[in-house]
């Protein structure tokens, strides 16, 4: 890390020093469900006034919005006190964050997917989850190669780029439409509340009621 980086980290870290909780939330579908869950758990959060602000004061908390995969980093380094992120992301990162609430929504399976009826040896697997996939293949004793893709992983099977993919499956609709099938379920994912360990201890008076409130929501644990 350079000298300049050190300054920027301390400037960012100061955000967490604000009186209000700082929450890292993922862009996209999970955002709306997360805001709803946080409100039901007792936080008064106003909708964002400027539709494009990436960091805004929502009343009881400051909300920062980012890509799903960046949430653990912001929470780990203490820039955010807590965040909401899919278990799939945490598993892929090998995260050590505290994750005291399983929110239950955004539930999906992480599965090995092949074209319907395929049976030959798997030589190459395409995925957004290279670490998880590699350790799954190692457990199965497979020597298949892992290729990291960034989206529409199913396409890899359809075009012959790979003979299997590892991806999240919610309803299976996309698979059926493309003549693909789940051949093995590797794991289960759902949205988790992740909490910075220092914040959990030093700002417990704010975080523990939030944790309790979220656990009481239907479907949460």
């Amino acid at each position: 890390m350079s000298v300049a980086d050190e300054r920027s980290v301390s400037a960012e870290a100061r955000v967490a020093g604000a009186e209000k909780l700082v929450l890292a939330l993922p862009k996209g579908r999970v955002m709306a469900a997360s805001m709803a869950a946080l409100r039901e758990a007792g936080l008064r959060l106003a909708p964002r006034a400027d539709g494009r602000a990436l960091r805004y004061d929502a009343g009881d908390a400051i909300v920062i919005e980012m890509r799903n995969a960046d949430v653990p980093t912001y929470v780990e380094l203490g820039v955010a006190d807590a965040g909401i992120v899919g278990k799939d992301v945490l598993l892929e990162m090998g995260s050590r964050l505290a994750e005291p609430v399983d929110l239950g929504f955004a539930a999906c399976r992480l599965s090995l997917i092949r074209p319907v009826g395929a049976s030959g040896t798997i030589e190459r697997v395409a995925t957004k989850y290279p670490r998880l996939t590699a350790s799954y293949l190692a457990r199965r004793g497979s020597s298949a190669e892992v290729v990291k893709l960034n989206g529409n992983v199913e396409l890899a099977c359809l075009t012959g780029l790979a003979d299997a993919v590892v991806d999240v499956v919610e309803t299976g609709g996309t698979l059926r439409d493309n003549d693909l099938e789940e051949v093995d379920v590797i794991g289960h994912s759902s949205a988790r509340l992740v909490v910075n360990r220092a914040s959990l201890k030093l700002r417990g008076e704010r975080l523990r009621p939030l944790i309790e409130g979220l656990r009481r929501l239907p479907g949460a644990f």
Binding site: S95, R96, L97, A98, P100, D102, S190, V195, F221
Partner: peptide, 10 residues
């Protein structure tokens, strides 16, 4: 337990 992950734990 260390990750306070009651979901995985159960």
């Amino acid at each position: 337990i260390d990750r306070k992950d009651r979901s995985d734990l159960s």
